[in-house]
Each structure stands twice: as C-alpha cells, then as structure tokens.
Design a protein around this nucleic acid. Sequence first.
DNA 1: ATCTGTGTATTATTATTGTAATACACATGG
DNA 2: CCATGTGTATTACAATAATAATACACAGAT
Lengths: 138, 138
Amino acid sequence: MDAKPTKTKFHFQISASSGVPIYRQIMDQIKIQIATQPWDPEQFLPSVRQIAEDLAINPMTVSKAYSLLEKEGVLEFDRGKGMRVKKISSSQKNFGERQKDVTPLLKEVIVKAHQLALKREDIFSLLEKLWREHPHEK
Amino acid sequence: MDAKPTKTKFHFQISASSGVPIYRQIMDQIKIQIATQPWDPEQFLPSVRQIAEDLAINPMTVSKAYSLLEKEGVLEFDRGKGMRVKKISSSQKNFGERQKDVTPLLKEVIVKAHQLALKREDIFSLLEKLWREHPHEK
DNA sequence: ATCTGTGTATTATTATTGTAATACACATGG
DNA sequence: CCATGTGTATTACAATAATAATACACAGAT
C-alpha cells in the first residue's frame, strides 16, 4: 500500500458520558454526515479497526454500528474492501412505503407539539427554518 | 364509597411481545390519549393499583410511568387523591424553550427524510395530512 | 384512632444490553 | 501460498434496566 492516507470524509466525536451507547452514536453520526455532506459513491468508510483505534474502543463496537446500518439499507458491504454508502434507497421502496416509514416519527412530532402547546404553524415554520439551515448538496 | 364505577376515560392495551417496556407503553399511551381526547381537568387517572390489576402487572411498574410523567410535567399528583392531567405547560416555558425542546425531533425528521429520498414538500404535505386526521378538541 | 384510599422508597431478582477478547472467513495483491 | 486488508460469529462479562415484593407515608372519612 502506498502512504497516501485514505482521504476520510467521515469522522466521529464520541461522548462517553452522554449515556447513549457508542455504537448508536456512531450510527447517528454516520447518518447525519451522509445527510449533510456530498459523498463520493466510490469512497469507502473508514475500516472498523481504523475507527476503533481512533476512538480507543473495540472494533466489534464499530462493527455493530456498521452491520445495523447495513441492515437498515444505509450502507453496503464489499467483501474484502469495506463499507460504503448505499446508493439511495428510493428505488427499493415505493413512495407509499416510504411515507409509511416516516409516519410514526411525524405522529411523534404532533403529540409532542400538543404537549408543548405549540401550534401547527409553529411547528411548520420551525421545520421550514431547520430545513433551510440544513446543509444539502444537490 | 358508592358503587358508581370511576368513569375512566383512560385505558390501556399492553403488548408483552413488542419489546417496549411496559412502563413506557403506559407513558406513551397516556400522552397520546391526552393529546387526542378532551379531558376533564378534575378527572383523576385510574389508580396505580387499578391499572396494575387490569393489566396483571405490578403497581410499581405503573408508578414508574406516573412519576416519570410527573417529572416531565405531563401529570400532577394530589396527595391522597391521585394523578391528573396537568394544565398545559405553555406557561412554564417560554416559546423559545419549547421550540428548542422539539428541535431534535424535527432534525430527526429531516435526516430520515433524506434517507428515504423524500422531498421537503412530501414531508410537509404528509405532516399536514396527519395533523388534519389527528383528533383535536379545542 | 382506624380504615381505606392515594403514590412511593427500598430492595431484590431477573432479563437485557453494551462492550470486549478471540478466532475466523473471505478478498486482494505480492 | 502467504501477508495483509476487509467485516463478523462466538463467547464472555459487566453494567444497566425492567419488573416485582414488601413496607411505608400521607390524606380523607368515619
């Protein structure tokens, strides 16, 4: 192998004290980074050992995050190569199914809004604002 | 006490196999029922022993749900009487704080939308639709 | 005071979960 | 074939979480 360091777009900041399990922090950060950065379709994510070393944790913990994300359809595994971001899953599920997937989360929003005495317009404008601020490439 | 059965608006359907802890199922169902039904401000929720008997579980499990909801500001406890729905918390937190409370959930929505290749308009119209279908009293 | 109704603190037990150690299977390139 | 690169199955262990048993404190009515 040549000495050129793998140009790794992904990196991680783990909080041991947050109470959130490490593998889940990794999953969340990968999802967020996928959603907020442009990525090279050919680019592999850092290897489990790479991340494990960086974070001083066990490789199996990273592996758990990776395989769960693979099961979720977010990443795909190339034998002997590594993990990379799976090309968008829009083709795999039809519109109705994807709507159905996100519905529970939206219901949660409605219940929480009620709890906090926030009106529908309040939620909509906040969501609108967050979406504008959200880095989106394409 | 007279024989008139406490006209209990709340009731619960617990699934032992869902993987979700019982106390959390109770919490969620209380929140949903508060959000989707009109409630009498004077009305007490069923007692811990009542619910525990109905569901054939331990009263402490119900107590856990109740005290967590109290800590969240959803219920309030009257010594010797029982729990009831706390009058809306809008006065306790200002608008900005409540916005901040709901923000993480909305960010989750955005990330998930991206994952599912759903456009902003898709999410907005779905949320709009769910909100219309959502029973709301006042 | 006593009886019966609230919810709960404390403790114990059981089940589940998060992390880690080890060894392995497969792919690639020398 | 062997060295080195992927991720993972298996197993073990420690920590945490969920549930339950018991006993308690307070309120209201008798």
